[in-house]
Design a protein around this nucleic acid. Structure first.
Lengths: 359, 359
DNA sequence: TGAGAAGATGGTAACGGTCCCAGTATTTTC
DNA sequence: GAAAATACTGGGACCGTTACCATCTTCTCA
C-alpha cells in the first residue's frame, strides 16, 4: 500500500523496498557506476512494483540540464510556423529533447516575458522567431546565461552568438520575378508587407542583406531581378499591404486600377497571395491571360483553385528541423561559432503565370 | 564581477549583497511573510543589480507545482490542431501557465513515451487528443498521479477522471446532411475516414455516442439525419478513405462511377473535402449543378475555389481554449467531477450545394 | 513601566535526485 | 596464502528554492 495516492514513489522508496541504499538504487536505475547483478535485479523489480518514475526536476537541478528546448514564435496557427514547428518537434524528439512552447502574437512584451519564463525554467536552448530585428536585448542576455539561441526565419544581428536559419529570401524572390521576366513581363507589380526606410536601396547595396527581415529581403530580391534584366525599379509598383487577406485584396485592386499597364503581380507571402487571388476573382480579371500571378510559399489550396497558382516554395518543415539541429548542436558545443544556415526556395510553375497579354 | 559568466545569481547571492539572510531575501522577492521596507528595498536593488532570476526548477521541487500544462497531439501542422493549439496557448498564458508540447504522429508508442516524459517533468495537467479510444492505460495512470487530464476532440471512456471537450460531431454532421436533404437530395454519398465494426448501428442506438471518435460520430450524424428524413441508410454510399487528399480523391471517383444516381456528397473532414473537390474538377463534373458538395471544418481555401465550398464549421480555436480551461480548472479543484463540454458546429452555406439535378 | 501582541529576521529542514569519497567484499596475481 | 587490484556499497554533500519555527525587536495600551 502506498502512503498517499498522490505521493509518487521516490528513489528512497525504491531503495528501501529493494533493501539497498539510495546510491545503489540510483546506480542500478541510471546505469552508471557498478552494481552487482543481484542488486540490480532487486532494484529493478522494486521500481516496477512501485511504478517508480524519476523526477526530472530533481535530476535537472543537479545535472544543470533540462533536455528541453524553448520555442518562441509569433503565431502557431499560421501555415508557416505550424509546419516549421513540426520540423522542430521531430528533430527535438530524435535528439531526446522536449519542447516548451510560447506563442507571442507578434507582441514584443509577450516575447520578453516568454523568454524570461523559459530562462527561469532553465531550458537548454531557445529557438526564436523574433518580433523585432533591433529590440533584442532580452535575446542577447540568454547567451550570457549559457542558453543556446537559434533564430528562425527572422534575423537579429545584435545577438552575436546565435545561429540563424532561414530561406534565401533574396534569391528565392529573384527566382519568382525572373520567371515572370522570362515569360516576357516588363511591368511587374509586387504586393508586400515590407515597410522600407527612405534610401533603403543604397543601404542594401552597401550592406548585409542577411540582416533584413524576410519581407524586406523578398522586396530586395524583386528589385535585384529587375535590375538584372535592366529594368528600372519603380516605387509605384510596390503595393504595401498589412498582413491580412483583406488588406492584400484592397492593395491589389488599387494597384491594378492605378497602373493598368501592369501585366504581372508577385505576392511575397501566402496570406497576401490569397488576397490578391481573391481580388482578381472580384474584378473578373482573367488569369493568366490578362494578369499573371505568382506567390511565395506553397499552400494546399494552390492546386485547388483555378488557375492553379504558380509559387516559389519554401521548405517550412526543413527550416524547423534545421533550427532545432542548430539549437541542439549549440548546447553540446557552446564554444561553437555562430552559423548561418540558408536553405533554398524552389519554383513550382503552375497555371497562373503565362506570357503577357498583347498590347 | 560575477564569479563565472555561466553561473546565474542565486537567492543567496542576492541575500549576501543585500546584507540579509536567505529567508528575508526570499520573503522580499516572493512577497509573502513580512519584511521591513528598508530590507525589501535593499533586496530588490541587489536582485536588479545581479540580474537575479529565480530558478523555477527549485521552486517547483518545493511547491509541487510547475505551472506547466502538457499538450499531446497527433499532428501540430494540421489545420485543426494548429488552431486549437493557439486557443490552448492563449488560455494557458492568461492563466499563468506554460506549455510543454509533444507531437505524436498518431503513434501510440510515442504517445505513451510523451505522457511518461511529461509526468516525469511533473506538469500540473495534460491536454491530450489520444491516438486510441481504448488503449488509454497510460492516461488513466496520470489521474492516479494527481495530474489533471483533459481530452481534446477524441474521447477515452476509460479515463474516468478526465474532462472531455469536443464538438457535437453527431449534431454538426446531421446539420450538414439536413442541409442537403432540405435542398431535395435523396441519394447522398459520404466520404469518411471512419472504420466501423459490424453491427455498429445497433450498438450506437443502445449506447453512448460520446464514446465514439470524431469520424465515427460524424458517420452516425449522417445516418441519423437520413433516418430522420425516412431515408434508408445504404452501406454502398459510404466511401471509405484514408486520411489523405489523394485517397479521398480516389474514393470519390469510385463512388461516383459506381453509383451514378448520387446527387450530393458529404465529406467528413477538410482534408477529405480537398480530395473530393479535386475529384470533381478532374472528372469535370459541374458543381453544384450535377453534384453538390459539403465539407466538414472550414478552411481558408473554401472561399477561394469555385464554386465556394459549403461547410459545417467547427470552432477549432474555442475548442482549444475550452480544453485548456478544463485542464487548468481541474488543477485547482482536483476533486471536481468529470465534465463534458460540447461545442456546436455552424452551417456556412456557400455555392457548392444546390438543388439536385433533374432526373 | 511592563506585559503582550505584532513585526521582522535568521537558521534549518525539507524537496528528490546525482555524485564523490571512503570503506568493505571479492577477485586476481604471484 | 598474502598482497594488490578490482567490484561493490553506503554515507553524505549538494543543487536553489520554500516553509517552518524560534528568536529578537518594536509597538501598543493598560
Amino acid at each position: 500500500m502506498s502512503r498517499s495516492p498522490l505521493h509518487a514513489a521516490t528513489i528512497v522508496d525504491v531503495a528501501l523496498r529493494a533493501g539497498v541504499s539510495k546510491s545503489t538504487a540510483a546506480r542500478a536505475l541510471a546505469g552508471y557506476g557498478s552494481v552487482s547483478g543481484k542488486a540490480r535485479q532487486r532494484v529493478e523489480d522494486a521500481a516496477r512494483e512501485l511504478d517508480y518514475q524519476p523526477n526530472s526536476l530533481a535530476r535537472s537541478m543537479i545535472t544543470g540540464q533540462t533536455n528541453t528546448v524553448g520555442v518562441v514564435i509569433p503565431d502557431i496557427s499560421s501555415h508557416f510556423f505550424a509546419n516549421a514547428l513540426r520540423g522542430i518537434s521531430t528533430a527535438a524528439r530524435e535528439a531526446g529533447y522536449e519542447l516548451l512552447l510560447s506563442s507571442t502574437d507578434g507582441d514584443l512584451g509577450l516575447e520578453r516575458r516568454a523568454v524570461d519564463l523559459l530562462a527561469a525554467k532553465r531550458v537548454d536552448a531557445i529557438i526564436v522567431a523574433p518580433v523585432s530585428t533591433e529590440d533584442t536585448a532580452h535575446l542577447e542576455k540568454l547567451a550570457e546565461q549559457g542558453i543556446a539561441v537559434a533564430l528562425l526565419d527572422r534575423p537579429a544581428p545584435e545577438v552575436k552568438r546565435a545561429s540563424y536559419v532561414s530561406v534565401d529570401h533574396v534569391g528565392a524572390s529573384s527566382m519568382a520575378v525572373n520567371h515572370l521576366l522570362d515569360l516576357g513581363h516588363r511591368q511587374i507589380g509586387i504586393v508586400t508587407e515590407a515597410v522600407m526606410p527612405p534610401g533603403w536601396q543604397e543601404a542594401v547595396d552597401s550592406g548585409d542583406a542577411l540582416s533584413l527581415r524576410p519581407s524586406a529581403a523578398r522586396l530586395v530580391g524583386y528589385r535585384n531581378a529587375l535590375r538584372g534584366a535592366g529594368i528600372r525599379f519603380r516605387d509605384e509598383y510596390v503595393a504595401h499591404s498589412a498582413y491580412s487577406k483583406s488588406s492584400a485584396r484592397a492593395a491589389t485592386e488599387r494597384l491594378l486600377r492605378q497602373y493598368p499597364e501592369i501585366t504581372a503581380i508577385y505576392c511575397t507571402d501566402s496570406e497576401l497571395s490569397a488576397g490578391s487571388f481573391a481580388a482578381l476573382q472580384d474584378l473578373e480579371i482573367s488569369c493568366p491571360d490578362s494578369i499573371s500571378l505568382i506567390g511565395f510559399d506553397d499552400q494546399d489550396w494552390a492546386t485547388l483553385v483555378r488557375p492553379r497558382l504558380t509559387v516559389v516554395e519554401q521548405p517550412n518543415y526543413q527550416l524547423g528541423r534545421a533550427s532545432a539541429e542548430e539549437a541542439i548542436g549549440a548546447i553540446t558545443d557552446p564554444g561553437g561559432a555562430r552559423r548561418n544556415r540558408t536553405l533554398s526556395g524552389r519554383l513550382i510553375v503552375r497555371d497562373s503565370t503565362g506570357r503577357p497579354r498583347a498590347r
